[in-house]
Each structure stands twice: as C-alpha cells, then as structure tokens.
Design a binder for these strands. Structure first.
Lengths: 202, 202
DNA sequence: GGGCTGACAGATTTCAATATCTGTCAGCTC
DNA sequence: GAGCTGACAGATATTGAAATCTGTCAGCCC
C-alpha cells in the first residue's frame, strides 16, 4: 500500500492537473488518476470540486502573501518603501502574465470563481499598504486622518497595475512609465492629503 | 419608393436591433429586416458586420464626448472642476450599468471588439483631463512639469471608477466613499506633484 | 446607371443525441 | 472500522449534422 492520501497531496496533484489541462478541462477524475486513487477518495477530503479549486486558490494567494512583506528597516522613507512594494507587486503579476500566460489565465479563472478568498487576499494586501502608510505618518512624512481609508485609496488608484482585468495593457512598452507616474502622483498625495470624512468636503 | 437608404438610418436601426436582441444574437439580416430592405443593401454602406458595429460604437462614444465637456468658467478651483468631471463620468457609467445592464453589456461587448475606436475615445477623455490640469497649473493651484503625462496618471488612477471591468464593484454601497478617497488623494497629489521624468527618480 | 434584390458558397451557430463528469453511497479490504 | 472502491443518477460537456448567417455578385428596376 502507498502513503495515506492527504489533503496536501491532493492539492499538489490538482495544481499539476490544472497546469497541464487548464481550468476548463481539469476534472476530479483527472486528479484522482494522477494520484492513482478512485475519484471518490478525493471527495473524502474536499466536499465539492469548487471547494477543491478554492483550496488551490487560497494556497496560491497565501504564497503571494509571504512574498509581499514590506521592506521596512533599511532606513528608507515610507514613500520609497511604498514604491518598492507596489513595484514588486506589479512585477510579480506582470511577469506571471508574460512568462506563463496559461497559468496566469488558470489562476484568473479560479479567482473569478471564489470571490470570498480573493476578498481576504485583497484585505490582507491593503492591510500591508496601511502598515506602510502608518509608518510614514509616524515619521510625519505622510499626512492623513484615516489610514485604512487612505490605504484602500492607494490600492484602488493602482488597480491598473495589479487587477488581472488590466493585464493585456501590461505588455505595452510605456506601462512602466505609466506606473511611475501614478505612484509619484499617489506618493505626492500622501504627503499632503487630508481626505474629508465620508460626508464632508474640502 | 421609400426614402433612400442612408448610413445614418442603418446605424439607428442597428442600435435598435442591438438593444432588442443583444450583441450575440443581432444579425445583419435583422438590421435589414428592420429597415425593410435586403441585407445586401446594408453591405453597400458598411463593408463588413464588424465595420457596422464599430460605427455604432463610435457614434455612442461621440455622444459621451459631447456630455463630458469640463465645467470651466464658474469660478471653481481646478480641483473642484476635476472632481466634478470625474464624478460626472463615474455617475454616467454607473447609472448605465445599474439602470440598463443589458445595454451596458452590449456596449461592453462592442467596445471589446473595436480597440482602435476605444483608444481614440480614451485619448479624447485624457485630453479633457489635461485641459483641466493645465488650467490648474495656470493658476498655480497644481504643480507638474508634464501635463499630458499627469493627465494619463489621473486617468489610470481612477480606472476602478470608469473601466467596465470594475463595474461589478459599482453596486457596493461604499463605492462613493472609495471614489471620494481616490479623488482626494489624486487632487492632493496634483497640488504638489513633480513626477520625475521617465528615467530619473525622486 | 445607381441602387437594390435575392441566390449562392463558405463560415458560423444551433440543437439534440451521446459521452463524460460530479457527487453519493453500499460494500469491500486491510 | 477507517479509508477506499466502483457502480450509479443526475448534471454538464462534446460532437456532428442541420440550420442560419456573412459577404459576394449577376441581374433587375426605376
């Protein structure tokens, strides 16, 4: 008898099957075949095919979280930490789009299926931006009276450089220049921004 | 004999057919039927079905251009003109999405088909933003050493509120707050922004 | 003769029959 | 008996034949 079938082994096999056949063709039977078990066994660990795909997506997004820790502690100004962080995120997305379009499309499909997981992912990344902004506020480099709200605004203002719907523009040779322009604009805004609260106005 | 068949009449009929059947089902034969002519006659005015659809798209986008003239000349600061302009654009898109989802989807499809027309459209709107920014620079309200580049940055930073790919988020009750936060951040950035040129850095 | 028609070829879409897949579960195996 | 198998019902996807659509053009009509 082989090793016991674990959820982890199923996830690894599912990733492999998704990579090979793509999200449209990958079936639970394929995953079971790759593991040398009956497909009924897979359902012992994951209630539905959707749950299995969601678990793969979560795994993938968690790996991104690990790579997106902000680069504090090198004496850089907060604007530079923010710029580097956004650049790192952009590079990661852009590279995975240009170098492995099929895998990118696969994950884009998965992401479109499990909105809850993605909301958690976005919330996490916006939280990291908030930490960077807070550091800038602490050193009086940035001005804002609502850090979480401003972090969300930075996220929203840079959608063109991380939201997969904009991926087709990432091949444009001027895209890095456009990125620099937006980040500079945002960074300048952070230095002097006082966002009026939800009802008021400047 | 009826009136002579004009390109204009064909465009009107095509819009009607698209509205009625949607982009997937609308055929050139349907358009001809609505006009009471043979479909061969339509091809006398438009070389292909794609050209016909593109002409409808252009017509629609031109109508938007006419409604998006900036509100200068009321003594408002440039930041307020910009804010009102972006709000007007956002409202227009959001309303057409919530009040007539089918038509919105139709135009989204058409837009996806004719990228050249859309590029012209975006270029026009970014040009309008540039005019607003230039007015702000003239009164020393804004600071930037590259107006067109900054205008593009404002456009890119507000993608979440006009790009159709983000339309599903426009129903979120907090979306207006998110919009205000981004516009405030951008407006603050315009007051103090010096975007480094393509190669340099701050 | 300028503009329109309608028949046509090839491309695309539809539809229904067929095959495959998902999710369940009784029973087998170690 | 904990974990796995494999047969099964209903849901979904595939396929290929038939129908429809696009784009052309010779000829008709005012």
């Amino acid at each position: 008898m082989a090793e016991a079938l674990t959820a982890e082994a199923i996830l690894v096999a599912t990733e492999e099957v998704l990579r090979r056949y793509g999200p449209a063709k990958a079936t639970v039977v394929d995953v079971a075949k790759a593991l040398g078990v009956s497909h009924g066994s897979v359902y012992r660990h994951f209630a539905t095919k959707a749950a299995l795909r969601e678990a793969v997506t979560r795994r993938w997004l968690d790996a991104i979280h690990r790579e997106m820790e902000p680069a504090f502690g090198q004496g850089l100004p907060a604007s530079e930490v923010l710029r580097e962080w956004l650049q790192r995120l952009f590079d990661k997305k852009r590279r995975s789009h240009t170098e492995d379009l099929e895998l990118f499309t696969t994950y884009k499909t998965l992401v479109g299926e499990s909105s809850g997981v993605v909301e958690d992912h976005v919330e996490h990344l916006v939280g990291l931006i908030a930490r960077i902004i807070q550091a800038g506020v602490d050193t009086h480099e940035f001005v804002t009276d609502d850090v979480p709200r401003t972090a969300q605004a930075v996220w929203d203002a840079t959608q063109a450089f991380h939201h997969p719907a904009h991926a087709q523009e990432w091949g444009n040779p001027h895209i890095q220049d456009a990125f620099d322009a937006v980040v500079s604009l945002v960074a300048a805004g952070l230095r002097y921004n006082r966002i009026p609260s939800a009802t008021g106005d400047a």
